[in-house]
């Protein structure tokens, strides 16, 4: 009997079925909380799900690598979802007219500012060089941040975590911060949110307003491109 238990347990803690279910349940709970609280900024489904799933796998003593492998099925769709961001943009295409130059300049400035400030701040606050290299790409979308951190000799898995935290920050506080900064132009708000909080910020922007969402998605793509080109040069000159 105990052997059957331990075998079942081993199966369970390596089973995509269990991990995908756990992830969906955590996400469902997050959606539920979001609805119940009338869309409270802190009740972001991604944040709730990470806390719930993180606590569950820690309690169950599951290896993160096993969990990650088991949820490949979910993470896989991040690529197609990025492609899907063309749709909100397509709907807003006429709003791109006369906006291309301001957009390209703003996103490039944003990429330089993001990389430079985070590297300098980490060093000034007593973080080591490895941490600075790891956090340099935190504004780009997660898959890019991971790949870029490899090029920059940082720690890619920690970069993924920091990048997602930057995204959650945008989903939680982005719209409020932009309002405090008195930015009311929908295109500017979207661009700013996508530039510093990538896909997670974009998901919040899509909820806020269709124009904001479309420009956040576009900004996310352009920021990934600009940062990939500029970060290696910036990091080399700063460290």
């Amino acid at each position: 009997m105990t052997e059957a238990w331990s075998e079942t347990w081993t199966w369970l803690t390596h089973s995509p079925l269990f991990f995908v279910l756990l992830t969906l349940a955590g996400y469902r709970l997050g959606r539920e909380l979001n609805e119940r609280t009338g869309g409270h900024a802190l009740a972001q489904p991604v944040l709730v799900a990470i806390v719930v799933v993180g606590a569950a796998i820690s309690l169950l003593d599951v290896d993160y690598d096993d969990y990650r492998a088991g949820t490949e099925l979910i993470a896989f769709w991040l690529g197609p979802a990025t492609v899907a961001l063309a749709v909100p943009l397509h709907r807003q295409a006429e709003r791109l007219r006369g906006f291309v130059v301001p957009m390209l300049v703003a996103v490039t400035v944003g990429a330089v500012v993001s990389v430079t400030t985070v590297v300098l701040l980490v060093r000034a606050l007593g973080g080591d060089e490895l941490l600075a290299r790891t956090m340099a790409s935190k504004a780009t979308t997660t898959p890019v941040s991971i790949a870029l951190t490899e090029t920059l000799d940082g720690l890619p898995p920690l970069a993924a975590v920091v990048t997602i935290l930057a995204g959650i920050l945008g989903a939680v506080a982005g719209p409020a911060a932009l309002t405090l900064l008195r930015v009311s132009d929908r295109r500017a708000r979207g661009l700013a949110l996508g530039a510093v909080s990538h896909g997670i910020g974009t998901s919040r922007a899509l909820v806020e307003d269709p124009t904001e969402g479309a420009f956040a998605g576009l900004s996310m793509g352009l920021t990934a491109l600009a940062t990939s080109l500029l970060a290696p040069l910036l990091v080399a000159s700063l460290l």
């Binding site: 955590g26 997050g30 993470a75 899907a84 975590v161």
Partner: peptide
């Protein structure tokens, strides 16, 4: 797919 964009970040985020 975009309606559930946040779900897709959960596996990497749990790496925390």
């Amino acid at each position: 797919l975009l309606r559930h964009l946040q779900l897709l970040f959960v596996p990497a985020g749990v790496g925390v």
